[in-house]
Simulated scan of single mutants.
Amino acid sequence: MIPVRLTAGEKALVELLANGLTVKQAAVALGISPNTAESRYASARRKAGGVPGAPGLVHQSYMANALDRPEAVDDADAVHLTGDQKQTLDLMAEGLNASQIAQKTKRPLPVVRRDARDVTAAVGGTSPAHTIKRAWQLRLLGVAEPVAPAAP
């Protein structure tokens, strides 16, 4: 795993991306110029190993503990994905877009796009990056917390 150390400004931007905002919307929310936001976004992506796109950046930031991992939600057992949908989610978390996922999986692009929309709807995401955060909350991505053994 690549160690990721984000500045406070980069971290604030990535947290807003994880909450569903675009880079431009995050700039407004942070009271910074769009150019500054784009610069922080590019820097954070470089620090995260050059991951393409906001979904990959959010996922890598959680994996490297550069962002606080979201807490699990109570309805985690309510979401069930097909094998193809889970594969699409995993590849979205790597930062791949629909065209890249279709090419990698040898699945038709319209099918991949449908699966990505279905995954986003199933987890309650509002954007691809927010879908990654929701998948972490639902424990569809990331490492589950260890469960203490039951008392004898």
Rank of each mutant, 00 (worst) to 15 (best):
G53C: 03
S39Q: 14
L91V: 04
L81D: 07
V58A: 06
V28C: 00
L109R: 11
L109K: 09
H80F: 08
V112A: 07
R113V: 13
D90I: 07
A48H: 07
P110L: 09
T105C: 07
T82C: 06
H59A: 12
V123R: 00
H80P: 00
Q103R: 15
P55E: 04
R113Y: 06
L30G: 03
Q103W: 04
Q60N: 09
P52R: 14
A64Y: 01
V79Q: 06
V58I: 03
T105S: 14
G31D: 12
R114L: 13
K86G: 02
N35A: 14
A29I: 05
G49H: 06
A116D: 08
V111Q: 15
A122Y: 00
S99V: 14
G49R: 08
A102N: 03
S99L: 14
S99P: 01
V23R: 09
S43E: 08
R40V: 04
A42C: 04
H80E: 12
I32L: 06
Q87H: 12
S43W: 06
E94L: 13
P110H: 05
A98R: 00
R46F: 11
T120K: 10
G53H: 11
Q60D: 03
A78H: 10
A93V: 08
A44E: 11
P108Q: 13
A93R: 03
H59K: 07
A26H: 05
L21N: 09
R46V: 12
K24F: 10
A64W: 09
V58H: 01
T88H: 03
A116Y: 04
P34R: 01
A102R: 10
K104E: 14
L109F: 06
A29Q: 14
V73C: 07
Q100L: 11
Q85L: 02
P52K: 15
A116Q: 14
S99W: 06
A72S: 13
S43R: 13
R69K: 13
T105K: 10
R69V: 14
P70L: 06
A42R: 15
A37R: 02
V123P: 03
A44R: 02
K106D: 15
D115A: 09
A27E: 08
A42G: 12
K86N: 05
T36W: 09
A29S: 12
E38L: 13
D90Q: 15
A64D: 05
S61N: 04
Q103E: 15
M63H: 09
R40E: 09
S33G: 14
A78L: 13
T120E: 15
L89Y: 03
S33W: 10
T82R: 01
R107N: 10
L91T: 05
A54H: 01
K104P: 07
Q87Y: 08
T22R: 01
H59Y: 11
T82A: 05
D90K: 10
P108F: 12
Y62W: 06
P52T: 12
K47F: 06
V23C: 10
N65W: 12
K86H: 08
P34E: 11
R69W: 00
V79N: 03
G53N: 00
V123W: 00
L96V: 04
A26L: 02
S61I: 02
D118Y: 02
L96Y: 15
V112R: 00
A121I: 11
L96E: 05
L30S: 10
A29D: 10
S61P: 07
G95H: 02
A121N: 12
P34G: 09
K24D: 15
I101G: 02
T82Y: 02
S33E: 12
V73P: 05
A93C: 05
A64N: 02
